[in-house]
Design a protein around this nucleic acid. Structure first.
Lengths: 138, 138
DNA sequence: TACTTATTGAAAACGATTTTCAATTTCAAA
DNA sequence: TTTGAAATTGAAAATCGTTTTCAATAAGTA
């Protein structure tokens, strides 16, 4: 998805297009690693210096609500966000540089069936995240 | 593991045994759902009313360091802790009552190999968590 | 029992996030 | 275009969870 597509998504959901939002959207949409609100703030302010941190929080909130971004959970903290993929995708994170890749095609049906039988649970969702080193960092 | 075993673990690592620690350890060790620091505080204070919230934080810190507890990540937040299993285990959470079960035997080798080849990453770790409904909540 | 040192709870400090508010900007309707 | 209602803004204040500071206390060793 492009930055413009995100802006259109916002507009179609009744939100207005402003300079603050454009700066935040562009920043996070083009990042290959997860960014915290303050990191988004620092980067986006270079394009739009009048930006306030509060607007970053408010825009991230809306982007998350529209499933355009997702929160990234890591041992060091869970405040960072990355663009969401389309469809069912999981995250692969580089433990050195922080780069995030998305991957599809996790087949957990066998595992889920086994666990379901063993525990009596109905399993409705799963989280899977892989950690490692990207090619550049090896 | 029993509560006493946890206390011994603390002692063997150079920490003293105090009433505050006993109350916190017993609370979290016997809970079948993940508890936040304040929840631990509220429960443990019933046994030991003089307990301070600060001691809860400090004890949780030590228990996490000794791998007796682990942080539970959920859509609603990542501040809750649960007793860790022994060995390589993953979490299965009830979305209704919050009960946590541990399970072993995730075979992700095939998946990890595939992703590794596709992306060029060396994969060193993974997080897997299942969400659903426990028998009582179905 | 005496003594060293870890541990305590209360209060203050801190950092991240949210709320409040008056001024500004967007965008639909005229 | 212009107008005007309503959304959005940034700054400041408030709030929340967590950490630090500190003097008093308690644990465990000698």
């Amino acid at each position: 998805m492009t930055t413009d597509a995100w802006l259109i998504q916002l507009q179609e959901n009744g939100y207005r297009l402003t300079e603050a939002r454009r700066a935040v959207v562009q920043t996070i949409q083009t990042s290959s690693r997860a960014l915290t609100p303050v990191e988004v703030f620092d980067i986006a302010r270079k394009k739009y210096p009048a930006l306030g941190l509060v607007s970053v929080y408010r825009t991230l909130e809306k982007l998350e609500e529209l499933h355009l971004i997702q929160r990234v959970h890591q041992p060091q903290g869970c405040q960072a966000f990355i663009a969401e993929g389309s469809g069912h995708e999981h995250l692969l994170l580089c433990q050195n540089c922080g780069q995030v890749m998305l991957f599809e095609g996790d087949d957990l049906d066998g595992l889920i069936n086994t666990i379901s039988k063993k525990t009596g649970y109905i399993i409705r969702d799963h989280w899977l995240q892989l950690f490692g080193l990207c090619e550049a960092c090896q």
